[in-house]
Design a protein around this nucleic acid. Structure first.
Lengths: 243, 243, 243, 243
DNA sequence: CATGAATGAGCCTTCATTCAT
DNA sequence: TATGAATGAAGGCTCATTCAT
């Protein structure tokens, strides 16, 4: 019945509202500043209503993280479809993450807070594993590309080193980088005008270190990036430019 | 007067006790589990006494971070004294950080919690700048080495890129790496048996990417590491081995 | 009209369902565990529907008590019809109460909770008097028997003492007894294997104390009890045996 | 030190205040009307202070029950010291309970609420066993007297019946009686002007039924009661008269 | 009639901070 | 200087009840 459908839509809508309000509060006022009362106030509904959607503050936080991971996964999967040499597809993933963090810094920041372990977050096992499995899907997307690269002879990993290791290394670099960027580190005072360019160069040089073909100097990476942006993330690119 | 001295010593001693108790609580029970009552109970003094040393919970947290940075600075400065080629001295810094995080994981973890921005930590400006300046000293130690490398011709940075950028890149990699390690990421399930070895290789390959001499393949880095450990961090090395 | 009748029947049916659900919740989870949400969930109807039958939680509790009293009254009235000497008919009432509490312990327990005064139950006057009048009918049934006994010369009460007093005394004994039994008192640890036998003996000896004829030792009370069970409560007896 | 002593005294004093306030609220407004806020308001201290004495609402309720049982035990033990024949000492226990309930009806009522099982009271095991053991001490006091009676030949219980059974029977009668009295049963409307006299007569006739010597008719029980009141409970008796 | 989303008062509990002793 | 009782604001959460659909 259409009534039922409309109700379901409204419910979903309300949930999104709540998540948005919670995310903003988490961002602006921290974990302690995110209270159920304030969420209710922000969405202009009562506290009881919030609790009808999320049974506890923990639930709400977990839902926030799930939402973030789902958006990231969507970006990664689109990136992986880029048609080009594996290292280009990997670059596309990097660009996906760049865009994600730049367009939705709230997601990255909230994620960090939630994962900071600062509150002994007692999410139930099921919720945690839901999040873990999403993280896995991200890793696997990267590893799939690395395996393609190895299969095609573009990448030859050192003895005893698997694709996961390179994936984790890149993950480390990106996480660390955005932690600093979104933290209070004043990159410009360090003489870095364009942090994203720095990140791209760093990861390229790192991949060069691993001998991942084609090397940074052997390819027109500027053109590749342009293609990735225009072919895979046209809207996101646009959104970023028009800010 | 000797009485005065003794008092000062006792005061210092008490403060260290408080910091240790707070750090343990922060680590084991999270930000919310760190309460002034529990700190007082742990040190077997009253809450009032705690407040005589740290005027607020924020003060206490800030002091924790300052302590961490001071210990890191000490490690870094010792590392920088290593006599060898610049890239070796840089490797020494890397080893310093490894040792620091491995021997005192509490420091790293607490630091992350405090910096997670989860609590809109309202430290006063003075405290914040004290912490910032300590971070600067760490960066500067690294940058000094990089400048030496450039001066000696071991490193030639790309056009328009300063030493800070490489420093920040390395910092990103290390932060990201330890965030994952100290987080719940199961490295072994990713096929990585020795995460520290992975970190060393990654940073070496990154430096190779920048053409920092001597390259990873051109030098006996295993021997260099051994020398660093035995000459600069004999005690820490010993402590690590005997665990 | 038959439609009207069916509707009335359905309404009655629904009400019984609600009462049963409420009783179970009250029993298993206490007053605080009895919530309108849970009742609705249990009967698989919505909360609104529950409210259509019982205007408030108080109403529901009152209805529970009324139901209990009505069932007790029915049992008592059947007991009173037993043909025999007054003391036998009184014994029949005792047996009625035994059966009632044993077969429907929920009723007794819920009744106790409702009457415990634990919630300042603000039932309206009308409801309360409805319950009071039902209690009266129980007393009167007993008193009627006592008056018969006096009239027939089987009982001679002390100067200044009316039948009500003996009725209240018996009531006290039974209530107290079942309160202990249904409470956590471990009768077996007190060396009492068959509490019901203890209750029967106690009340008989009490009646003996009042000189109520025929005395405990002068009559075959075992046989009398058998007759009562088989003539007045054959079904209940059967139900009890087959457990 | 005297300071320490004074503090301890004040603490004790505060606890008694809290218990008194809680008891009054429980009595006047029921379980749901007893809130930590109201307790705090009543004693004119803050809620935090209440929590410094009783860690939870459950704790507070448990303490209330312990207090009640301790007062009852004290009364029972004094009663048991009465020098006279066992049945007189048993009568003294009965009088102790009468006085207790009459002088401190709050205790009886609160006890009933707490024990009503209306709230799935989740007291921890230790607390519960503390209360259980206190109940035991009351029973044992009665059973001791019964054993003395048997030893002296004043009481001869039927085959297979132990003193506990008689003790439980009396306990039932008293509990049931006071439940009715303290409930809303209008004894006067039942023609009972002096309920306590009714209780005494009932228990005497019950004991007569058991053949407990000296029988109700063979002894000057009015005089015995007088002696008990004046010798064992002079103050309580006085207090009762002057109301 | 049935539904169930929305409400919001109110409860229990925690904890940083103060201050009289 | 040490103590710890007292404070009270604030937070997470529940639930009886209402009412638009």
């Amino acid at each position: 019945m259409s009534t039922t459908q409309r109700k379901a839509r409204e419910t979903k809508q309300r949930e999104l509202q709540i998540l948005a309000a919670a995310r903003q509060l988490l961002l602006e006022r921290g974990y302690l500043g995110l209270t159920m009362d304030r969420v209710a106030e922000k969405i202009e509904y009562s506290k009881g209503t919030v609790y009808q959607h999320f049974g506890s503050k923990e639930d709400l936080l977990a839902a926030l993280e799930v939402q973030t991971m789902d958006e990231r996964i969507a970006m990664f999967q689109r990136a992986a479809t880029f048609s080009g040499r594996p290292r280009e597809r990997l670059a596309a993933i990097g660009i996906a993450e760049e865009l994600f963090v730049q367009l939705k810094p709230e997601h990255f920041r909230c994620s960090q807070i939630i994962n900071s372990g600062a509150f002994q977050a007692k999410m139930d096992e099921k919720t945690v594993s839901g999040i873990r499995s999403r993280e896995m899907r991200c890793s696997e997307t990267v590893e799939g590309i690395l395996r393609d690269a190895i299969a095609q002879g573009d990448l030859k990993l050192p003895e005893g080193m698997g694709p996961s290791e390179l994936s984790l290394t890149l993950w480390s670099l990106y996480i660390g980088f955005f932690t600093l960027v979104e933290g209070s580190i004043p990159f410009d005072q360090f003489g870095v005008q364009d942090p994203i360019a720095m990140l791209r160069r760093s990861s390229h040089l790192l991949l060069d270190g691993y001998g991942f073909q084609p090397l940074f100097g052997d390819w027109d990476w500027a053109a590749a990036s342009e293609r990735i942006l225009s072919e895979v993330f046209p809207d996101e690119h646009q959104a970023l430019l028009s800010r």
